[in-house]
Design a binder for these strands. Structure first.
Lengths: 168, 168
DNA sequence: AATATCTTTCAATATATTTTGAAAGTTCCG
DNA sequence: CGGAACTTTCAAAATATATTGAAAGATATT
């Protein structure tokens, strides 16, 4: 396979993976494009390469910057801004995990926690089942939460170093 | 909080969590409804409770059965079918992980793997950067893959038992 | 085999999300 | 200041996804 073809394939795949995960396609594709670009790209270049509108490019680049997956970069003597993606994939993974946890998992954990003290008759089967299920879920989500925190805050090699033996 | 209110809140939250994760809202809500029901429910009851159409209910119940999150159950002397959710939340988590991995992660891993042997000039910066990034990603996704496999296949307590110390 | 009960299908419709692009906003520089 | 170069905004349009419900398909019952 040639480089150009490989880049194209990567951009398309990353885009469709993104949309399955609730990240919009353009955002994921811009991210992919910047990942495969050795040089910083301008908004104009992103638009041309992916055939998207100015507004769309702008909005999604901004979002990528919010997620800290992309940063602005200036070229000397150039008025316009250029963009570069974080290329360390382990860091990328942690940044994505962090954002999604914040937006999706944390509110859920909060709600589950609130559902832990429901008033009711302790002899009632419905009540007992509900409480057991929520308790179970609360325990599980809290473990998951701690684990994610650990991963998000871990340095570059911690995760691999710790688990590598278990995975072989 | 009263039981009925808690159930309602759980159903709504589970539904919106689901849609953020690419699972449609009705499917997640039916799942939640069955999770909080001590008794098996008929399609009719699901429709009434969640105010969805027959077609919608049917389609999503079927999908939940595909995922093995729900199973059919018959009541003696009853013609129609009833449905029950798997209530063990650790098992639920593993079943969901399994399905999503199959549908989303596995194809991605395959593609990344293919992108590992691209032809090109070894002195070219673009080429070198691309290869380094893909290599990095390939290593990472393979570790992740192995980890998920381990979790999916683990029995009820393996995961918690193994990691509990690390999470405290 | 006719009827009643329940399930499945799918084209039409509704809803939600994404994208566009022109206009407004900002910043830089002579 | 005035205008060129670039960025941001946002209402309208396009696209994608989910839902409806009537009709067709099963399956049990008399």
């Amino acid at each position: 396979m040639q480089l150009a073809e490989a880049k194209e394939k990567f951009i398309q795949s990353w885009g469709s993976l993104g949309s399955q995960w609730g990240i919009n396609k353009t955002m994921a594709q811009i991210h992919a494009l910047l990942l495969v670009s050795a040089e910083p790209l301008s908004a104009e270049e992103v638009m041309e390469e992916l055939l998207v509108s100015r507004g769309n490019a702008n909005m999604n680049i901004r979002e990528l910057i919010n997620w800290q997956l992309v940063r602005r970069e200036n070229k000397p003597g150039e008025r316009r801004e250029f963009f570069v993606a974080e290329k360390d994939m382990w860091k990328v993974f942690r940044l994505i995990l962090k954002e999604r946890k914040k937006r999706e998992i944390d509110p859920m954990i909060q709600i589950i926690h609130e559902l832990n003290d429901v008033k009711g008759d302790k002899k009632n089967a419905e009540y007992k089942e509900f409480n057991a299920m929520i308790k179970d879920l609360d325990t599980l989500t809290n473990k998951g939460d701690k684990m994610m925190e650990l991963v998000i805050k871990s340095d570059e090699n911690w995760f691999l170093n710790t688990f590598i033996k278990l995975m072989r």
